[in-house]
């Protein structure tokens, strides 16, 4: 009679809470990203405009420095909603480049190395995997958009007197809302495109195509068909339109041509459509299956 010794035991120690497991995906993605020296340097470069902004604030509030530099601050150089809008728009684009460098590799490598199957055969749902990846982009973009924005607001409120903070209190909401709008659109779209094409280089190209080639197509559409509706294909344009609304920028002084603007509802509808299509793509493509094409 055979005797089998039962020596194998399953793990019965303590487990981390299920809600926090997406953090594992995020943690490893972060550590992979910051292994690249170029990425780390680029992340640091993203803060350069913020330091310039701090210097600007200091100069504006220091008559002594102004005197030393021999400059006189006119009203055009004042810090107001337009100043914050433009600074954070520039920061948003820095964040965009950062996310473009980070996102495709973060996802496509999981597909290329068949790691998605390994992730999803653990007690980790597709949603948790997605939340883990989105949280990486969200943290990166937050660090260069709304968080420095709020800090700058706090600094400005501290330096300024006569109730500036009270008059511009709405800017806190504008900074946070614009930051999170950017995060939502960028992270969903970039992840969806990366999951769709599954090749890092192609995904990077596609992301750049959507943000640079599509605006060109939109303008060609407008020029040939003598219309303004081609701009619904121009994602940076519609985001800028919303951005200026959030910051209550006077349309006459904004980035965008005052005449022939798209109505706001169409801008919101475009952004919503992009997010929905991205979510649908993610739902369709983010699956642990391997397809060999003959």
């Amino acid at each position: 009679m055979a005797v089998y010794k039962r020596t194998y035991k399953t793990y019965d120690g303590p487990l981390t809470p299920a809600w926090s497991r997406f953090g594992v995906v995020a943690r490893y993605s972060f550590s992979t990203l910051f292994k690249s020296r170029i990425f780390t340097i680029f992340t640091m470069l993203c803060f350069v405009p913020v330091f310039f902004a701090i210097a600007w604030m200091y100069v504006i509030h220091s008559p002594l420095v102004q005197q030393m530099l021999g400059v006189r601050m006119g009203s055009a150089l004042q810090i107001n909603n337009q100043w914050f809008s433009q600074l954070l728009w520039a920061q948003a684009w820095m964040g965009f480049m950062l996310a473009t460098a980070a996102t495709p590799g973060m996802v496509s490598r999981d597909f290329a190395n068949h790691a998605l199957q390994l992730y999803l055969c653990r007690p980790l749902s597709r949603l948790e995997y997605l939340v883990g990846k989105i949280s990486v982009i969200a943290v990166l973009l937050s660090a260069v958009t709304w968080i420095p924005g709020l800090l700058l607001f706090a600094l400005q409120a501290q330096l300024e007197s006569h109730g500036w903070a009270w008059d511009h209190l709405y800017l806190i909401g504008s900074i946070v809302l614009s930051g999170w709008l950017w995060i939502a659109v960028i992270s969903l779209l970039m992840l969806a495109l990366s999951v769709w094409v599954k090749w890092r280089i192609a995904a990077t190209g596609l992301i750049l195509g959507v943000f640079f080639l599509m605006p060109g197509f939109a303008e060609a559409f407008n020029a040939i068909l003598r219309t303004k509706w081609g701009r619904v294909f121009n994602l940076p344009y519609v985001l800028n339109l919303i951005w200026e609304q959030i910051y209550r920028v006077d349309p006459r002084f904004g980035h965008i041509n005052y005449i022939n603007r798209l109505p706001m509802w169409s801008a919101w509808a475009t952004v919503l459509t992009v997010c929905l299509i991205s979510a649908w793509l993610l739902n369709q493509k983010l699956k642990a299956r391997e397809v060999e094409r003959g």
């Binding site: 190209g205 060109g216 197509f217 303008e219």
Partner: peptide
């Protein structure tokens, strides 16, 4: 369209995709 779409974007991105 030729200068702003084809040259600066279409051919640029097309060549980027093809040649890389």
């Amino acid at each position: 369209i030729f200068q702003l779409f084809y040259l600066r974007l279409g051919i640029f991105f097309g060549c980027m995709g093809l040649f890389t």
